[in-house]
Computed example of a mutant assay.
Amino acid sequence: MLALLEIKWSGITLHDWWRNEQFWLIGGTSAHPAAVIQGLLKVIAGIEISFTLTSKSSAPDDGEDEFAELYEFRWTTLMVPPITIIMFNVIAIGVAISRTVYSPFPQWSKLLGGVFFSFWVLSHLYPFAKGLMGKKGKIPTIVYLWSGLICIIISLLTVYVYPPMGNQGSIRFELP
């Protein structure tokens, strides 16, 4: 509700707010944690990390999307966390649906809540995914391999911490 009031009072459109939310999440899963780590390395270990500024294209061509430069990507390790989050949410949706469908006592409300949250995260990361798909073949395979490996590790840790119930939770009736 607070966000809606801020939108109303600031006079920005809902589309502009949504685009801001999307890019905030993309930055919050890639650049912001990297900046915190770099800051900690500088303060604690005295390690200085430098970067180079790159120029963007000056003006959009005719018929080109006005936000086209926002979808231009260059390979960097900062791509691994958002790709991992995308993969993890897609896998989570598949696992949740299969667990609910094949459960003896399906809990549809849990499924709807979890799928809604995963789609919410995926819709925020849509510009990032759109940029990746636009550069098909130009992003090194190692980025996808690292993201997949991290996603598998997180999935296995989740299964280890929260093991599936199997038949342990079902009630058995036996006749004498």
Rank of each mutant, 00 (worst) to 15 (best):
S103F: 05
T76S: 14
V80R: 01
W108F: 10
S109V: 12
A92F: 06
W75G: 07
L111Y: 01
Y102T: 09
W75C: 11
I91Y: 04
V95D: 00
Y71Q: 05
I83M: 08
I91H: 09
I83E: 00
G94L: 07
L70W: 04
Q107N: 10
V95F: 00
W108I: 11
T84D: 01
I83Q: 05
W108V: 10
R74C: 10
M79K: 06
V90I: 15
L111P: 05
A96H: 08
F88K: 13
K110Q: 13
Y71R: 13
I91S: 05
I86E: 03
P82G: 10
P81M: 04
Y102S: 08
V90K: 01
S98M: 11
Y102G: 04
P106K: 09
T100C: 12
I93D: 00
I86V: 14
A92N: 02
W108P: 05
V80P: 07
T77W: 08
L78Q: 10
P104V: 14
V101R: 09
P82V: 11
W108N: 15
S98G: 08
G94C: 15
P104K: 11
K110W: 11
I83R: 15
W75V: 13
L111R: 00
E72K: 05
A96K: 10
F105H: 12
P81G: 03
F105V: 13
G94S: 12
W75Q: 12
I85H: 03
Y102N: 02
S103H: 10
M87W: 01
E72W: 01
I91R: 14
E72T: 10
M87L: 12
P81H: 02
